[in-house]
């Protein structure tokens, strides 16, 4: 017990590059092959379960996706025109903007090898670390959207704090109304909330929420502008509330992450 308390105290007080953190990083590297092997053995069973689970919802999902496809087709045409127009205007104005996603970022694609067995921290372990150029606070995403950020790095593995973790908030933007707020964990597992949206701004159900990517007096958000987060699934405000009370349905399925992309700025020198 005493040893545990000493470990907690030293680990908690030392900086991220301290002795215990280094020992832990080495330990994580040693454990990595076992985790990878275990994941490979479990993969066929997990896939089979996912296949059967998918069948149950296939019909209703098909109808929903067809409806969504029709809507997206018309939006795509409008979007393509807007992008072309935006590019023309930017080049005419010689516009200098923030780093943008995905064109200003490289990525490291890596397997998810572990998940924190705790209800207190929503974290996953990935099979790439500082040897791949990953650093603390690098944003992590999948093709669906934002997953979270790198919170600890070892030479050959890293810990990613998910967007559903109580300690993580991301500045976000409603693409349709330009309302800004903070996305954080929701009440239920795998749900998110959008907080700090002024009541003067507007939110609508179905609006797409993306990362805001702000920059202010030398400080900037670690997340570039435009990484999809989710859609507004419900928004209410009452007279006593200062801000909107909004729920966000994330694009990423946090419970079934198998691989992720760690985003690394192209300006960074990689090993």
């Amino acid at each position: 017990m005493l040893l545990s308390l000493i470990l907690i105290t030293v680990y908690f007080r030392e900086p991220a590059g301290g002795g215990l953190h280094s020992v832990q990083g080495t330990g994580a590297t040693v454990l990595r092959p076992f985790e990878v092997a275990s994941n490979r053995v479990a993969a066929p069973f997990r896939d089979a379960y996912g296949w059967f689970a998918g069948l149950i919802h296939a019909k209703s999902e098909n109808a929903r996706l067809r409806e969504q496809l029709d809507k997206l087709r018309s939006e795509k045409i409008q979007g393509a025109n807007a992008v072309r127009e935006n590019g023309d205007l930017r080049s005419q104005l010689h516009y200098v903007g923030l780093a943008r996603f995905p064109q200003d970022y490289d990525y490291v694609a890596t397997d998810v090898i572990s998940r924190s067995p705790s209800d207190f921290q929503q974290q996953i372990g990935i099979a790439a670390g500082s040897s791949s150029g990953i650093r603390v606070n690098d944003p992590v995403a999948t093709s669906d959207g934002l997953v979270g950020k790198v919170s600890h790095v070892a030479p050959h593995s890293a810990q990613v704090t998910l967007l559903t973790d109580p300690n993580l908030n991301v500045s976000a933007l409603d693409l349709h109304t330009q309302a800004t707020g903070l996305v954080g964990h929701g009440e239920g597992q795998g749900t998110l909330t959008l907080d700090r949206v002024q009541k003067a701004q507007s939110l609508h159900e179905g609006d797409t929420i993306v990362t805001q990517g702000w920059k202010l007096k030398g400080l900037s958000s670690i997340y570039p502008y435009g990484i999809p987060i989710g859609t507004v699934s419900g928004a209410t405000n009452s007279e006593v509330d200062l801000y909107w009370n909004a729920q966000v349905s994330p694009f990423v399925h946090f419970d079934s992450l198998q691989s992720v992309l760690v985003l690394i700025p192209k300006t960074r020198n990689r090993p």
Binding site: M1, L3, S4, L5, I6, L7, I8, T9, Y11, F12, L20, Q24, G25, G27, A28, L31, E35, S114, S116, P117, S118, Q121, Q123, G125, S151, H152, A154, S157, A158, Q159
Partner: peptide, 25 residues
């Protein structure tokens, strides 16, 4: 219990000692 907690915390890069303390007790 201590050994198990240490393994779990190491594999997850979590705060060392937390799970060890709980599982030791």
């Amino acid at each position: 219990g201590f050994f198990a907690g240490l393994l779990v915390d190491t594999a997850n890069l979590a705060t060392l000692g937390v799970t060890s303390l709980l599982l030791t007790i």
